[in-house]
């Protein structure tokens, strides 16, 4: 289990992290989301020891993380993270060796990952000669070549085409199923919702929500999002206290109920407008939750 305990970090006068704590269970796919500049990369860099926190600590399997433990982590930074002029195979062998594999094992691991990401024909090429998509495959191989016990990826899906997204999701899923916790940040919330069991939403250096995705959606439901369909009254828009009108979808009109909004009065108003064919409390999607917590001044979910 990976534990982040009350991480704090400032850059000069700017507070980048203001007490971030969460944990990732073995075999868990963990999504790390938040607006730009919220502190995602800073958090990941601290986990990887690339950055020192001002306060707090990172624990792995109950022990504080040091350089020897980190050698068994895998990390993929946001951009490249490869020597542009180094050959693919040499690069993977070098990184494997830095992580403690001996020469023979490093070469075997490099060859095997090159094959797995489908770059056997390009193994002797310089990284800069490859297309961006292929460079990303090398990057993935580089993060995995030493068989890490934990994988941390910063925006691994950005810039991938749909096929690339599927390939990468498959590889990550496989690793997680094998017991390796996988933490990644992403702006593609539908993807995070689909792939991850748990998420942390960060804003301005603080966690605004963390936990199992299903649990968060369930908690976010509590009569707050209502979908109503009224037959023969397409233009119907209720004007009630505590009710905000959302978008009109194919299955009806979405309404937000604030704390002072009353669902019973809403239903009465709908029935007065026409025949009600649909009335349900909706579970918000992750993106809706995200928008809510990020836009509503970080109100906790």
């Amino acid at each position: 289990m990976l534990e982040l305990i009350d991480l704090r970090r400032r850059y000069g006068d700017v507070v980048a992290l203001d007490g971030v704590s969460f944990s990732v269970a073995p075999g868990q796919m963990f999504g790390f989301v938040g607006p730009n500049g919220a502190g995602k990369t800073t958090t990941m860099r601290i986990v990887l020891g690339v950055l020192e926190p001002d306060g707090g600590e990172v624990r792995w399997r109950g022990a504080p993380v040091d350089l020897a433990i980190r050698a068994r982590f895998g990390y993929m930074p946001e951009e490249r993270g490869l020597y542009p002029k180094m050959r693919v195979r040499d690069q993977l062998v070098y990184l494997a060796r830095l992580h403690g594999l001996d020469a023979g094992a490093a070469l075997r691991a490099a060859e095997s990952w090159i094959e797995r990401v489908g770059l056997t024909a390009r193994a002797g090429d310089r990284v800069e000669e490859l297309s961006l998509g292929n460079q990303q495959r090398v990057q993935l191989g580089a993060a995995l070549v030493h068989g890490p016990e934990l994988l941390v990826l910063d925006e691994p899906f950005s810039g991938l085409d749909p096929v690339g997204v599927d390939v990468l999701s498959g590889v990550l899923r496989e690793l997680a199923d094998g017991g390796v916790p996988v933490v990644f940040s992403s702006h593609q919330l539908e993807l995070v919702e689909r792939l991850c069991e748990a998420v942390a939403i960060i804003k301005d250096g603080r966690l605004v929500a963390t936990g199992q995705v299903e649990e968060l959606r369930e908690r976010g439901r509590r009569g707050r999002l209502v979908r109503v369909a009224v037959e023969g009254a397409d233009g119907w828009r209720p004007a009630l206290p505590g009710v905000e009108v959302g978008e009109q979808g194919p299955d009806g009109l979405l309404l937000h109920l604030r704390d002072d909004g009353d669902p019973d009065r809403l239903l009465d108003a709908a029935r007065a407008a026409g025949r009600v064919t649909h009335f349900s409390f909706e579970r918000p999607t992750l993106s809706q939750l995200f928008r809510r917590v990020v836009q509503d001044e970080g109100a906790p979910v």
């Binding site: 690339v50 982590f73 930074p77 490869l82």
Partner: peptide, 9 residues
Amino acid sequence: SRVVEVLLS
């Protein structure tokens, strides 16, 4: 190239 991040981890 951000290799340094990978290396320093």
